[in-house]
Design a protein around this nucleic acid. Structure first.
Lengths: 280, 280
DNA sequence: TCAATAGTGTCTGTAAGACAGTATTGT
DNA sequence: ACAATACTGTCTTACAGACACTATTGA
């Protein structure tokens, strides 16, 4: 921040000069239940948007750090005593009309959680439910929460590519198949098991060899725990569905003049340096 | 946002019940001047932090979108009539004590700009200057602005890897050498020119073949303009300085028991599945 | 035996790092 | 001619996709 110079009394702010805002946090808490990516929603009982589903959230206290408020809401809303997953800020939503009653800016957060208990007994009384994200996006959520949820999904999908955060969706010990399942259901794709475990094995510190195996209807699977690495380098890029090997125009010295119309959508180099100065 | 159910009167908020905040925006405006990545700083003339350098910013208006406030500050502080680069939110900084006078949360932004005029004649009167980011980081900036600037640098360095935003640092027409220079000075590395232009050429829509050439003391360089692509896929990863081919532990069936102490820092697969059940 | 799941290996194409060589200007 | 910058090509290695194969359990 900083006061704009010349608009402020020398010794400090005149608080009445600056418009007051309420500041809230909104949480997109994601988890995986039965192989489906789910988000925690609460049912609103008061206007506006009474009867609509909304992301959990609440006001930031007068002396409370915004990030602390998010952590506090997280334990209140999920009903766990300590939250073990990952929390990070998404962005801040500050359109003037986003709450019809007063000026509210909301800091959006996304949290990745291992599978959590179903309904919250304690905390505040409203109904809370895990929704598959596909269905949640069709619910016409309150306020601008559909936008926040969409941003959260894009964030988590992107972060799985170059971080080791997929582990945050799993309990302390997990199998490589379970880890692969995280990628598959977050990205909505299926991955080759051999290539996946090659990649995990080649990323030093992603997982640490575990202490046993787990039965699962077939050959027992080795258990692993999270390793010290937080980044994947090089990343594991999600397969792009409609991406053929890409048009990939080349930068050759363009043989013909305009005969090659090339249906490819504009762009790229090629036919350069033939513009001006081509003397000798 | 959303009111916490049960704490609010049925028909709306009691505004006095929720702590009032001031909301500001802080801008890390980055540009490249003479091959050096620079950030715009303003000299503070009032307490707190009188005499310190700070990121430009200001209060969000009562009826103003937070993102609009950032755009407004940008033209005010840079002194241009229209800002042509790229602006995006960084994150929100909301620690209670970050402004000693009152409760302020600040939404940080990062902007990428083509080279801009030196000092701003119009706008507000304070002194503003472009600082090389290396020196700016040593300046002991006001408030938590050192943190914001560091976050902005990490953001721009990361975004160059998988987006086409490097173009935002350049004017409408540019050469490939200039584009390469953006990567080099933002990342602080030097790149191989041949490999660089191969990558740019292989990324459909990154650049569009231009209409002429520009003299530059040697062979003239072809001019390009920005193509329609916004993402680079696959990304152009910045070289990691201290990254040898990586320890890269393999997942073989671990010949010995514990003889191999392997100085590598923990992690990875290997020696798995030898834990329990090894019957036949 | 078979189904089911876990895990290994190999072949192939793409793409990046390294680096040598050619092209086009001004002096 | 030379320096300086722009651009092209080639060789090698890393790595991902595809897919075949082996291993270990329960029924």
């Amino acid at each position: 921040m900083t006061a704009r110079r010349g608009e402020v009394a020398p010794a400090g702010y005149d608080a009445s000069e600056f418009p007051p805002f309420a500041v809230t946090v909104d949480m997109a808490v994601l988890t995986i239940r039965d192989g489906v990516l789910c988000v925690l929603l609460v049912a609103r009982s008061e206007d506006p948007f009474a009867g609509s589903w909304a992301l959990p959230g609440g006001f930031v206290g007068a002396l409370e750090d915004v990030d602390d408020a998010a952590a506090r809401e997280l334990v209140e809303e999920t009903g766990v005593s300590v939250f073990t997953g990952h929390v990070e800020q998404l962005r801040t939503y500050g359109a003037p009309g986003r709450d019809p009653r007063m000026r509210v800016v909301s800091v959006g957060f996304v949290a990745f959680a291992p599978d959590l208990p179903d309904a919250r007994a304690g905390s505040d009384a409203a109904q809370a439910m895990w929704w598959p994200v596909d269905r949640a996006l069709g619910l016409d959520l309150a306020f601008d929460h559909a936008r926040i949820l969409a941003d959260a999904l894009e964030r988590v999908r992107g972060k799985l590519e170059y971080t080791t955060l997929a582990r945050e969706f799993l309990p302390r010990e997990f199998t490589l198949s379970e880890l692969q399942g995280v990628f598959e259901c977050v990205w909505g794709v299926s991955l080759d098991a051999g290539n996946f475990r090659r990649k995990v094995g080649a990323t030093a510190g992603f997982v640490t060899a575990g202490l046993g195996t787990r039965m699962s209807g077939g050959r027992p699977a080795a258990l692993f725990t999270a390793g010290p690495a937080t980044l994947m380098h090089p990343p594991l890029l999600r397969p792009v569905p409609g991406l053929a090997p890409a048009p990939a125009l080349e930068l050759a010295p363009a043989p013909a003049l305009e005969a090659t119309s090339e249906s490819a959508p504009a762009s790229s180099l090629a036919s350069a340096s033939a513009g001006s100065a081509v003397a000798s």
